[in-house]
Design a protein around this nucleic acid. Structure first.
Lengths: 190, 190
DNA sequence: AATTGACCAAAAAACTAAAATGGTCAATAA
DNA sequence: TTATTGACCATTTTAGTTTTTTGGTCAATT
């Protein structure tokens, strides 16, 4: 059945991109892994890049769903950041792809990957920005520029998750979520 | 006179590294620009990498001096961050070299440059960490882990100065300093 | 004693040939 | 008739080779 084949392809591509990155994933490989002929892939996806987009956008959808599942509007903003972050960090499969893509961008500079990371970044920031605007409207947080603040929130997250462990022992999910909550809650005042 | 020659070399190298980066700066070029024979460079510096180190460490020294000049221990911590940051940001010459190095690391991955950026990062973070420890000891800021906090402070700074302008209009020095001060002062609470 | 630049080994760049890959489509299977 | 396939091809990537450039030395010169 057509739907089954499509699912097989998406699954195979997802695994392959996560394991080998974009460049090192070949269409022949994906076809073999999915157990279909190479041509079949092209009945569902215009080209490799569109297949990649499918994988990434479903990842983003999943991440959004995960976040929504734990956010409770009546809780303090910082608490929700903590909950969403912690939940997200527990999904190692999400991370596997992100790690691979970040690595590939750094050491090979693959254009399609750079563009996709850029896209992921702007999606996440846009999401944060909306949450933040709502919180400001409710008077729950001070009215800083939400564009800049969500940008910074995202960069802090990336720094803690991906940069910190270049020179230190990795931080646990709990620790990361805790740090961001503490900083956001009180800043460094008093 | 020997001192004069050395100064000429350092000046020439500084300009060249800032304009062309590490890789694209040749020793012949530096010699010509400094108006000395190439061999003369090697009477002052063991090799290209040591010349590079001289440039960078004098940059770091300057930056430290600039910061010290405006920091006033009796002011609030966030206010001092604001002052130091603003002062630093006004020195475009410092930045020219940093910009070039960050760019070179990204698009050519020159090893010597990566190592140097790593070194610069750890120097700045160590400096921040000391300041932070002192502030904690005085009870001026909460006792978060200074290693992590100074790491985050640095990453925020880099994000605002170098990453923000990839997709937005650059922020003014005043704005950047203001944002960091506001966030550090109050966080996103209330 | 200090300085230099021709010189050299080693590294990088340019070039070329060979292999791999994305995408197509006539043949095949369902 | 429709969905699927994999041999095939143009293009890109990689591997191998040659040429050029560059960091560093040191005998000659100032």
């Amino acid at each position: 059945m057509a739907t089954d084949r499509r699912k097989m392809i998406v699954e195979a591509a997802g695994k392959s991109f996560s394991m080998f990155g974009y460049k090192a994933t070949t269409m022949d490989q994906v076809a073999k892994l999915a157990g279909v002929g190479k041509g079949t892939i092209y009945t569902f996806f215009k080209n490799k890049e569109e297949l990649f987009e499918e994988i990434v956008s479903s990842l983003l959808k999943e991440m959004k769903a995960e976040a929504e599942a734990v956010i409770q509007p009546e809780l303090p903003f910082a608490e929700n950041v903590h909950r969403a972050l912690y939940r997200l960090l527990e999904f190692r499969s999400h991370h596997q792809l992100m790690i691979k893509l970040i690595q590939e961008e750094k050491e090979m500079g693959t254009l399609a990957v750079s563009e996709m990371l850029q896209h992921i970044e702007s999606e996440i920031i846009a999401y944060l920005k909306e949450k933040m605007k709502a919180a400001i409207a409710k008077g729950a947080i001070p009215a800083f520029d939400p564009e800049i603040t969500s940008f910074l929130l995202f960069k802090m997250y990336i720094a803690l998750v991906f940069d910190w462990e270049k020179n230190h022992e990795p931080l646990s999910s709990e620790r990361i979520a805790e740090i961001m909550k503490a900083l956001l809650l009180k800043g460094l005042s008093q």
